[in-house]
Design a protein around this nucleic acid. Structure first.
Lengths: 246, 246
DNA sequence: GACATCATGTGGTTGTTACCAGTATTATCG
DNA sequence: CGATAATACTGGTAACAACCACATGATGTC
């Protein structure tokens, strides 16, 4: 594993280095709290400059794989159960990361005139008068996990019906491929609520059961709001994870 | 505001630049979605190298104040209500950030032998047989906000009684000043639960009311667990905020 | 032996230079 | 006029050099 430089590899050197180091960590070659080679040593080992070494280590530190101590060295972080789960994920990705097979049952899907609350959350321009509204029961391994209500801002002129959504797979991939719109950031609030009779019925629990309510506004790479999503999770089946840093 | 370089200022140049740019943003001089000067222009304006410029911009991008577009420029992010609240904060800091005056009523404080659950969460070594246990009612503007139960790993030989805690202010400042232990990271889970009669009484709500349960393990800069904290928040008075990124 | 000093190794900061990779405008050609 | 090509920006990657700040262990001194 000497010098990196795969001439056929178009990925940046620093990122090749990230991959190599992460592999050496997850393979168990580098153990928790043990130092990795110093930056000067890594220069020789992989024949890249310290600039590139530091760029790679910076990323791994931010991802929580390594930690630095000034004057002492760079060390391997102990592996936590949950990796970096303060990342923006879709319901499906979230479920798969937990080892659960996601599913859904669409209750309603239509273009609709947004309420004032939805307009404000999505910071809608005046000329946008319709958004895509979806209500669906979200399943994990076939059983109800949560009730999701979402409002999506679609590019001018585009609409979507149930068949269209099922044909394209996910709204995200449609927006990305056709319009280069990518979800890059989101603001989320979480609170505890009690299930109403309707919600309880759909989620197959008793009315008055606790639910975890997630309200999220997702922003594109241009920092424009692109969707407003509420999910009511069954408290007995769902916990929210967060990784906090100082 | 020409060159930076305050010779009396010990803070790094890139951080001085971060402060300057953040000020220019929050003052409204640089408006959302407007480009900031290019990296080459900033070199001339502040008489620092592009290395330093990029280091400052990197930090501001990670903090959510700016976003970059390859080939186009660097732009100001629209200001959200909640700044970067996926940061590790104490209850007191959290409350103050929300404009609420924090308070507490200590219900119990003692050295105790940890249960197996607590031992595992704190990854306690075999020779550590006692931890500091605290149960307290947390107040916001004088009214109950939540019920906090915490277990703290103290350095060998150190104990703490109620008077000692009140004298030193906070456990964090004590551990930092005496032992250079700093909380740098935490794993947190959130779920919805119902109030038991005891909890309801302490929090002055009806039994069966919804509560937001936060369970957190905090790690030091050496990635050793240093505390295990559960907080039961009144759902009608507390929402959890998170900022997610891709 | 206890303590201050120094040498050496670590990560942290900064400057300079060069070139690559996208984007947008302008000039040019058919 | 319309499509294409050149060009002049933007941020992204990379190398090399120098020095600072912190930690540690060896060394020397009292």
């Amino acid at each position: 594993m000497p010098a990196i430089v795969d001439p056929n590899d178009y990925t940046p050197k620093y990122y090749q280095l990230v991959t190599i180091l992460r592999e050496r960590i997850s393979s168990g070659e580098l153990l928790p709290h043990q130092p990795i080679p110093s930056e000067r040593q890594l220069e020789d080992i992989y024949s890249v400059s310290r600039t590139t070494i530091r760029q790679a280590i910076d990323l791994l530190v931010r991802q929580g794989f390594l930690y630095r101590e000034h004057g002492r060295g760079t060390f391997v972080s102990p592996q936590k159960l949950q990796k970096g789960i303060s990342e923006l994920t879709s319901f499906s990705e979230d479920m798969r990361a937990r080892g659960i097979e996601p599913g859904q049952k669409i209750l309603e899907l239509k273009m609709a005139v947004p309420s004032e609350e939805v307009r404000q959350r999505l910071e809608l321009p005046a000329d946008q008068d319709e958004v895509l509204f979806i209500e669906r029961l979200r399943l994990g391994d076939g059983v109800p996990m949560g009730l999701m209500t979402s409002y999506h801002v679609l590019p001018e002129g585009l609409t979507l019906d149930r068949e269209g959504l099922e044909a394209v797979g996910s709204i995200y991939s449609l927006l990305q491929e056709k319009f280069h719109l990518i979800a890059t950031e989101a603001d989320e609030t979480l609170e505890a609520v009690l299930a109403t009779p309707r919600e309880a019925g759909l989620l197959q629990i008793a009315a008055g059961s606790p639910l975890l309510l997630s309200v999220r506004v997702t922003y594109s790479q241009y920092r424009r709001a692109m969707e407003y999503v509420k999910i009511l999770y069954r408290a007995d089946r769902y916990q929210y994870f967060a990784k906090l840093t100082r």
